[in-house]
């Protein structure tokens, strides 16, 4: 039996021919994109501005959207990543983003540390020393809980390449924490 609900592909094709028909995609993806941006800027008003820019860019560019097998969300999140990075670069600013145990638990495990407050602080500190591209990998993997495949779609990389990059960053974090601990003692 055929579903009466249009699938994502049909919605995209409809939006490509008429911008007014972008509404179902907007309704469905507004919240995930909003939260994706909020986790990086930690400010509701700024998040709302950046989210509306993301959707405006998506609507302008949807005519040239090609079905490559990657999910539509990956395309949308890639626009969001670029928009947030552009905001920080243009305004030469940074946002202070709080992380709690839930955010850091998995990452702490991955770098082979115990779940203590001291280690959480060291880890947050080590994260701040990473360059933008590497922080992005950690954000996508451990804070947004993406699979390697989804990350690859968002970043325009291969799945294996993404995995390798993430493991390199984890190794770097591990060394950075050890160094920071030694300096403290």
């Amino acid at each position: 039996m055929q579903s009466s609900q249009p699938n994502e592909k049909e919605l995209i094709i409809a939006a490509q021919s008429n911008p007014e028909r972008f509404a179902p995609l907007y309704d469905h993806w507004y919240k995930p994109v909003f939260l994706f941006v909020f986790k990086r800027v930690n400010d509701k008003e700024l998040t709302a501005d950046l989210t509306s820019q993301v959707f405006l860019k998506a609507l302008v560019a949807i005519k040239s959207y090609k079905f490559t097998g990657a999910p539509f969300s990956a395309w949308l999140f890639r626009i969001a990543v670029n928009e947030v990075n552009m905001y920080f670069r243009k305004n030469n600013k940074h946002a202070t983003v709080p992380l709690d145990e839930n955010d850091l638990r998995q990452l702490t495990e991955e770098v082979g540390e115990n779940e203590t407050e001291e280690n959480y602080n060291l880890l947050a500190d080590a994260l701040n020393d990473l360059p933008e591209e590497q922080t992005q990998l950690i954000e996508l993997r451990f804070f947004d809980k993406n699979s390697f495949l989804d990350m690859a779609h968002i970043l325009g990389l291969t799945e294996a390449g993404t995995k390798m990059k993430v493991y390199r960053v984890l190794e770097k974090l591990k060394n950075s924490i050890t160094l920071k601990r030694q300096r403290k003692q």
Partner: peptide, 12 residues
Amino acid sequence: MSKYKFDKNKKP
């Protein structure tokens, strides 16, 4: 760029 800090009482 985002700067992270550990905060036990992070707002939801």
